[in-house]
Design a protein around this nucleic acid. Structure first.
Lengths: 251, 251
DNA sequence: ATTTATAATGTTGTCTGACAAATCTATCAG
DNA sequence: CTGATAGATTTGTCAGACAACATTATAAAT
């Protein structure tokens, strides 16, 4: 059995990848529909004239990419909601990196605020207001309020009713956790900073409540602009101090 | 050899995933530094008391996640730039979806333009200008100019000197290809539209060239705002027509 | 005839052993 | 000290087997 009938993989690249590509293509083009069962590993091995190990690694890649799910004893199936994977470098915790993340936050959250002002439902508005209140509550109890701060901005992203924003923000959250810890730690160092933050949050919420797109976008932009400014005023040893708290145990 | 010394994986979940998690954790915490070599597959198998197959699948997952790279005959190494994967649902090609992508583009490209105006190097500015010229050239030759349009916006993202923007834009490019084909097909239907687009592009470049952040951001915002407006003016059968061209053959 | 156990079969998960291909290391010649 | 060669190491692939689970077919019972 040395013949390659059907479609033979082009040489050069790794074997599993070649098979994975063909299957991926078949899924993306809709040739294999969501929920449909893939050929068995043995069948695929015979089709491409490769061993089961290679087939398994290929399927492993698809599974990892969220394109298929495997059930022992049953088979592998095309996922109901096929996904693609975006691979991103893990940001280091330097000040430079934190600022780069702030820039991304600005891009996303300014627009999210604009869309939220335009589209938020009453219940979404309520959730946003609750989230803002939660921050103050947490701070009064003595917590750092990082989780609440993140939740607050997440509710706004949700209110944009555009899944792209929430998906990306959710993804970056684990790194934002560190970044926000840094900014909030910094802001808590001076009372004036804390007051500013509360004020800025309030401005965003007010604009969203009134449905004033432009005001919401500007308020969000100002908030993150000031956050960056406040961060640059921070003592130089701030990052090390936050590092030591071990607060960024997420991931 | 039936004992699990060291750290034994908790039962229940699939074996390879358990091992993958432990290794992932070690990498994320910096316990294993970038560039460092992993233990051999045989060694890992012995440590966790599992067969090489399982170890290989675990490493395959890490490789797939961009955390390690393997070199035959040499070993597996922690990637120099460890990454994490963001999995997103593949957007459908409806008008609604195209507009959602436009909103994301606006968020990213407005801010990218602002940063580009602030930080672009002379050579980056040159590349942006070339990219803009390429669009006109392609159109004159009779091409649709989609690839050139995408490249143009990509060079601006590059000039922002923030890798987050380029990473996300690169990722969404495969879907933007379809979206931009739609918008450009639409724009090419009326001469006035085409003229507008050229004008708007020019405005962005001018602002970036002069280092005027605010103007660059506004120009980019206007461009995408108008793109959405133009799209909404499009004939209702536009999407189907684009579909038929088969231009979106990219994966 | 329908339902319920039971057996047979099919499929993925894991184990074991082997060899090929590429790389690394140590030895030796000059 | 340099360079070539031989050996050892390590990942990639193959082959076959069994275990764990799922599905299907068969038989039994009411």
């Amino acid at each position: 059995m040395t013949t390659n009938h059907e479609t033979q993989p082009t040489r050069g690249v790794q074997l599993p990848e070649q098979v994975a590509r063909q299957l991926t293509h078949a899924i993306h083009t809709g040739e294999m529909r969501p929920g449909e069962r893939l050929p068995t590993e043995a069948a695929l091995g015979e089709r491409y004239d490769i061993s089961r190990s290679v087939v398994r690694e290929a399927i492993s890649m698809l599974r990892n990419a969220g394109l298929v799910t495997s059930r022992r004893g049953s088979g592998s199936f095309v996922a109901e909601v096929p996904t693609v994977a975006l691979r991103l470098a893990i940001p280091d915790p330097s000040l430079q990196s934190v600022i780069r993340l702030l820039e991304l936050r600005r891009a996303l959250e300014v627009e999210a605020a604009r869309l939220a002002a335009q589209r938020r439902t009453p219940s979404q508005l309520r959730r946003i207001r609750n989230a803002m209140a939660d921050i103050d509550e947490a701070v009064e109890v003595g917590a750092d309020g990082v989780d609440q701060d993140m939740a607050f901005h997440r509710t706004i992203a949700e209110a944009s009713n555009n899944t792209h924003f929430t998906a990306i923000i959710d993804f970056y959250n684990r790194f934002l956790h560190h970044a926000i810890t840094v900014t909030r730690t910094n802001e808590s160092l001076r009372d004036t900073f804390m007051a500013q933050v509360i004020e800025e949050h309030q401005a965003i919420v007010d604009a969203i409540a009134q449905g004033d797109e432009e005001a919401a976008a500007q308020a969000a932009g100002r908030h993150l602009e000031h956050a960056e400014w406040r961060l640059r005023q921070a003592p130089t040893d701030l990052l090390e101090r936050v590092e030591d708290t071990g607060a960024n145990t997420s991931v």
